[in-house]
Simulated assay, not measured.
Amino acid sequence: MPETLPRPLDRIPPAINIIAIANFAASLSARALDPVLPHVAEDFSISIATAASFAAVFAFTFAVIQPALGAAADLFGKVRLMIACLVLLGLANVLGAVATSFPLLFATRILAGIGSGGVFPVALSLTSDLVGPEKRQIAIGRTLAGSMTGNLLGASFSGVIGDFLGWRGVLATLGCLVVAASVAVAAGFRGKAIAHTPKTTLRALRHGYRTIFSNPNALCYAAVFIEGCCVLGLFPYLASFLFDLGETRLSISGIVIAGFAIGGLFYTMTISRFLPRLGVNGMMISGASLVGLQLAATAFGPSWQVQMMCLLLMGWGFYMIHGCLQVFASELSVEARATALSLHSFFFFMGQTVGPIAYGFGIQNAGKATTLLTSAVIIIALGFACARLLRQRPPADAAV
């Protein structure tokens, strides 16, 4: 392994908590601008579709940087990279708060995407290093709790802060919180993983790529691309949907979007019960079906209270299938696990990059209801396809 850490789950609660803190800090910024996009668009005299490009560029940057960051984590150390990226993310948010033009704010979102991109997949890789496959989905669920809490607070608090301080206050506040979190993570890992010298080499990384893509389960990458497109691609338009209904309070937009993260937290609290009963295939089919039903319900423009409940159930269902796909990705390679999980994030966030564009095109040309119903059908079909095609297989380099 690149870093020598204890594997039994009962010996690592402090490390898991530190990883969750890093995920929490990085995830605060992911959906921070979604509830305040109408005001960003007004300040810079741009359309809501153009303002939605902030979400697309964040996701695109997050995605394209993944192969490089995954290799860097395997070569130079996961924790070092994670701390550096947290600092970059915090500074990018602060710079965004003082941006005086649309291009400058756009540039800071690119930096934020790079910073966030070095945290989430590395956190999953560290968790996978620490915990064996038999308990990995539950452990990853605990790590994801930090990420989902960050998404929850990032969306809901940005709406509340936006009503009082505007979108600039949102970015400034989040930037300071992320920088503070980087200090806490550095202190928590001092003398632990940072002190170990990575053993991975460039030659081993090349072998790792071959190992990853020769595994039939690598089709999980296509699955997470579709997930990102159909589910997360919708988020930049939720505030404008509410505006169309006459609900212009940014705090309400934040609450609705935060419902997705609440559903994700519910997943982390129930996975240990549902996984033994449903199995991996049942989790993927049930989760995808639940997501599809909520997309269909949202298509008909219910009240914000109903939409919030739809997002909550959507979040629960989404993580039921997404958590399974993360475990499949973590088992594609042992020696290049950070690379495998970074590629997982690459395809997922490429889906989030294409998603807002596809939704914008569909809404303008086919209408909101048709576009969302089409996404619902696609995501349900995805769940059944994954259950049929993905199988538990040991990685080819498991004995290395």
Results as ranks from 00 to 15, higher is better:
281 N>K: 15
313 L>D: 09
362 G>D: 08
362 G>S: 04
259 G>H: 08
297 A>S: 07
252 I>V: 12
276 P>K: 09
291 V>S: 01
304 W>Y: 14
365 N>M: 07
255 I>A: 11
300 F>Q: 15
284 M>Y: 05
334 V>N: 10
321 I>G: 15
368 K>A: 05
287 G>T: 03
343 L>Y: 08
344 H>D: 11
305 Q>K: 11
357 I>G: 04
261 A>W: 02
276 P>T: 04
341 L>C: 01
301 G>P: 04
253 S>C: 10
360 G>H: 08
314 M>Q: 12
363 I>N: 00
294 Q>S: 14
344 H>T: 04
279 G>T: 03
296 A>P: 07
296 A>R: 11
286 S>V: 02
276 P>W: 07
355 G>K: 07
337 R>H: 04
251 S>G: 13
269 M>C: 10
249 R>P: 05
353 T>E: 01
248 T>W: 07
250 L>F: 10
269 M>P: 06
281 N>Y: 05
278 L>Y: 01
322 H>G: 05
273 R>H: 08
295 L>V: 05
328 F>Q: 14
345 S>L: 02
252 I>A: 14
320 M>H: 10
321 I>D: 12
324 C>W: 07
361 F>V: 07
344 H>P: 06
324 C>H: 07
318 F>L: 03
320 M>S: 14
280 V>I: 12
364 Q>K: 06
329 A>R: 00
297 A>G: 10
290 L>Q: 05
365 N>I: 05
262 I>F: 07
310 C>K: 05
279 G>H: 03
310 C>V: 02
289 S>L: 14
347 F>Q: 02
273 R>E: 03
350 M>Q: 11
361 F>G: 08
305 Q>G: 14
276 P>L: 04
355 G>S: 08
367 G>L: 13
283 M>W: 04
263 G>W: 00
353 T>G: 07
253 S>K: 14
353 T>S: 14
367 G>H: 04
319 Y>H: 15
260 F>R: 06
358 A>W: 09
309 M>N: 12
294 Q>P: 13
359 Y>M: 08
327 V>P: 00
307 Q>G: 08
358 A>K: 06
351 G>N: 03
330 S>N: 03
316 W>S: 14
323 G>D: 04
335 E>T: 14
331 E>R: 00
368 K>R: 12
349 F>E: 02
268 T>Q: 01
315 G>S: 15
286 S>I: 01
293 L>R: 13
337 R>K: 03
280 V>G: 08
257 I>V: 08
341 L>Q: 11
285 I>P: 13
355 G>T: 14
350 M>C: 10
309 M>D: 11
267 Y>I: 06
306 V>M: 12
